[in-house]
Nucleic acid binder design. Sequence first.
DNA 1: CGAAGTATTGAGACGTCTCAAAATTAGTGG
DNA 2: CCACTAATTTTGAGACGTCTCAATACTTCG
Lengths: 231, 231
Amino acid sequence: MIVRISANSTRVKSVPHGLIALTGKKAFWNTYKYSHGTQVFRNGEVPDYIYQIREGAVRSYKLLSDGRRQIGAFYLPGDIFGVETEDLHRFTAEAIIDTTVWIVRRHRLFENADTKNIFELLHHSLEHALNHLLLLGRQEAHERVACFLLEMDRRLKKPAVIVLPMTRGDIADYLGMTIETVSRSLSAFRHRGIISFNGHRGHREVILKDRTKLADVALSKYRRRDWMPDR
Amino acid sequence: MIVRISANSTRVKSVPHGLIALTGKKAFWNTYKYSHGTQVFRNGEVPDYIYQIREGAVRSYKLLSDGRRQIGAFYLPGDIFGVETEDLHRFTAEAIIDTTVWIVRRHRLFENADTKNIFELLHHSLEHALNHLLLLGRQEAHERVACFLLEMDRRLKKPAVIVLPMTRGDIADYLGMTIETVSRSLSAFRHRGIISFNGHRGHREVILKDRTKLADVALSKYRRRDWMPDR
DNA sequence: CGAAGTATTGAGACGTCTCAAAATTAGTGG
DNA sequence: CCACTAATTTTGAGACGTCTCAATACTTCG
């Protein structure tokens, strides 16, 4: 379900600085809202827009024919996406939770003489993908989960509490593992005092009690058989 | 070891069409040769050139601190690389076998008004990386090896014999698995008549006896427990 | 309060890794 | 071209980590 809630020809609350830097001040932008679980675009579609997240979260993913899913990236408030695409979308993007995005038409992107910003976004996506290749190909389960927590921590600007918009299933499909293994890694971190969960709102709110130790886990300072002797 | 063997101010045998399309006909290009195992550039360096392979093969990779390696891509004759880089190289590239490349200085890239080709290359790299994420995160060992063989087959234009420039170790680090598992998958394919090895030059030369069946394996038409009951 | 979705935990199965040895191929110098 | 050594590849056996299947607990929301 797509609900159009505003356009900048009408009164608005704020401004998509990132999109404006990308497309020029003359570009018209709109605000759209996607309710949780709905698709922003899907693999194979012709791209019309580029997006910046105002509020909410989006996952991008590819599927195998039997349903196995690999999430390539999560987009959080401020993030721009849809630029990575050439003639067709190469992945599907859908809202994880209720999400508001700013959009501008794609052709505006190439009316802008300054291509530097586009290159930067592409490079950023590519660098993220290459780092993720290393994680998926060569890191172990707890390293992956630790990396994920640190990535979220960094991108959310090191908040006191990390409020995860995504389910364990999303995390699992991002990290190339199962829900259960994600859960077990998180439990192990909790038992070791590296993280804790906040209050009673599920275990979606994570507090990093010891970023140093978490980074040690992420950076393979402890290998599989060396730590977690408690099981 | 870098050996300069020619420049286009002197007589040359052929012309790097890809690089010329990218940088304009006025760009000066040189030919360089890297002997097998030597680095073209390394992670963290400031990029000076972009490269097109004339002969040979290059692997690009990232390392973890303890030596685990993930190869992100193989570059084969005709392939252009080094464009994926922004201010610093984000991975290391080294010659797998003795390799000759055409190079042009990087600044030539942005003197060219037509950025379309650069975008295409970036998109291509990104798309390859995203597909590889799916493979590393969600595909099983024989699926990965089958995908690898089909990728090489396609990129080498479906030759009668695939002459692999890379070792089993390179393949393993590309597919996120161990040498032994790669070898076992290849042996399984061979025993099932899907591939065969050519002659006595090691098992580096592969003949695809049944591309259809190989594609079935790659595309998960057989799952882990369904096929290969013979072990 | 009941129902559906989500997360945790446990036990056992299974696939890949590790370690080791043998077989094969490539490289080197006489 | 041969003898020797080094490197690569294959194969085997067992260890280990993650997955699968299943049950329980928790959270959300009607």
